[in-house]
Nucleic acid binder design. Structure first.
Lengths: 124, 124, 124, 124
DNA sequence: GTGGTCTAGACCACC
DNA sequence: GTGGTCTAGACCACA
């Protein structure tokens, strides 16, 4: 993973978001064990406490659960993962529509652009 | 403006991108004077040279032009601005499709989600 | 190389021009590695940043490309080099015609002079 | 005038060259009075001694002559001026042929380029 | 006061 | 050791 953080939002929320992303993307499958906190912290270049906080939030959302001694695991509840995936997609889509609106494209134009884009690789 | 920079890309390119965005969004109209380099630098919290570099790139793209003593101005060529706007929209749309694909949504599902989202503010 | 700079044009543009010249002249062949930035800077007696800027412009023109760790290389695209060579020749020729015009020689007289000069080393 | 000097040759020779140029170009007509040394020096941003030296050389070549009290004048010998003009043109032409040779164009190709160039304003 | 250029010096990622 | 980026600070031309 390549962890990238912006300066305008707490790192732990961004970490949380990115972890949710890799989970719903299936990088870590349902029921799979997550890397230890220390390892994640080292990898992301942040403080272990920050990782802890992000994971707690994911736990609150029901995406991961922890077993005292064995570590943390992705939930085995596929519906939960699916729900999170749908939520992330919805958020992204909403952001996208907002960005396009700021660029002066209404919903119709945006959809038209996407249709057109899917056709083939237009030259950039 | 709220300038936010990520750590995975040079500041000057992000600055360039964000400036292009505010220009094509009409925050600075065609022919309008941009703030002085030093002011932008102070505002964005970066070195004037970095701003200079970003603006030079915008000048190369024909979005702005500079008058040595008077300052920098948005181009008066509306077509240029329109073209840049279309390009930015295309880039965003492409990124979006990629992100959705990573979330497991193909083109049809993505379009359906956008359609559905148009109705109103669904629960967050 | 003997680097000579005039005072009426930025160093980096002159550097760029002179580097283009040695490339299209074949001093550095297609695909060949250029000296490191720091070495060129030392050689030319300018700051490494200035060399960097000149090389970036050459890269933008497609005459050189850089590999982060290995150094900079002349493009392997012979057509690009040939195109640049033709462009330089055209520029030089245009300048020459202008200079001769300022000396009062029209096109016919200029061509005649060049023809005459071809014979051998006339007395200086 | 915009006086520009390189660093690889004594200023006085370059000054001499440029003064010869303005004379044979007719900026100062035959018999016309040249500006005082001090004025030229101020204008060119060099030491009056340097101007003196350049003018002495021009005097040696017969392009100018000095009258103790009245100042320096362009020679009234039109043939001398014409001869200098021809010499300058020859020098320039020789330099040009050399530069084109370094760019890989032989005399035939060079002449062809000039012919082609004179036709119209090709886009750069 | 504006844009533009240049220098000096630092740090980073990559191998 | 390589290219790349960034900062700090200076100077210049121009009006």
């Amino acid at each position: 993973m390549d962890w990238v953080f912006r300066a305008d939002e707490p790192i732990y929320t961004q970490l949380c978001e990115q972890l949710a992303l890799v989970i719903v993307s299936g990088v870590y499958a349902a029921g799979e064990r997550l890397p230890p906190v220390r390892e994640l912290a080292l990898d992301a270049g942040v403080n272990p406490n920050t990782v802890q906080r992000a994971l707690s939030e994911l736990e609150r959302r029901g995406l991961v659960y922890s077993q005292r001694t064995a570590g943390r695991f992705v939930t085995e509840d596929a519906a939960r993962i699916e729900q999170a995936r749908a939520q992330l997609a919805r958020d992204r889509a909403r952001d996208f529509l907002g960005a396009m609106a700021r660029l002066g494209l209404d919903r119709t134009q945006t959809l038209a652009l996407l249709e057109q884009l899917s056709g083939g690789d237009a030259k950039p």
